[in-house]
Amino acid sequence: MKRTIPLLITAIGGFVLIIAFFSSYTQSWGEVAAIWFDILAAIAFILGGGNLMKIHLKKISDRKAGWAYSGVTLIAFLTTLIIGLGKIGVNPSEQFPDYAWSGSYREVGGPFWWLYEFAFKPLTATMFAMLAFYVASAAFRAFRAKNIEAILLLGTAFIILLGRTYAGVWVTGWLPEWLEGLKLENLTVTIMKVFNTAGNRAIMIGIALGIVSTSLKVLLGVDRSYLGGGEE
């Protein structure tokens, strides 16, 4: 029972949506399912957020190494949550000035906006920016011409890197007109349009097939690891 019903739910949910796609009347069911999923995911925040609080509270109460940082996390979490859910410091919306709760929780100038603009955004954007450094160290360490495959990878990257700056123009700008196709900036375009297109297409077709077969395995109950292993 505990395992059969979920398997049935999975199979019925999936196959109904597949069949619905082919009928004029039911084509929108897929979108409805997507909205329902969003709602489920939003409700699941309670599980995730609760888990987050539990872990950090435990660290603090156990006085584990670095428990003070757990304190920072908790304070940041609760402050943001209260300000955001309570729409603190937010003015009403312009269409409904007499409804106190009608304003946007993200209103520019409000406390939640402040947290977004001066904490969330710089922190995440800086994490993103660290990639510039990692890209450099990866280029130094990993791009070694060990074999033909590696040479192709780094050679292409090399051409693109050069071709996408003014340096590319310097290096090959002297080429005569009949060799224009070999100018770095044009070579870049050819690589992108021909080789890159072919490679990407094959990957995409393969992925689509992989997804079809994975989905089928899930729907048919061949692969049921998410429900916990083979045995009943």
Binding site: A136, A157, L161, T165, A167
Partner: peptide, 24 residues
């Protein structure tokens, strides 16, 4: 912004070359 971009790309290319010289 192309200024830093150009210099950084040149650095990347230099790094790839140095990396390969070491490798060989």
């Amino acid at each position: 912004r192309m200024g830093p971009q150009l210099v950084a790309h040149l650095l990347m290319i230099l790094l790839i070359i140095v990396g390969n010289v070491i490798y060989f």
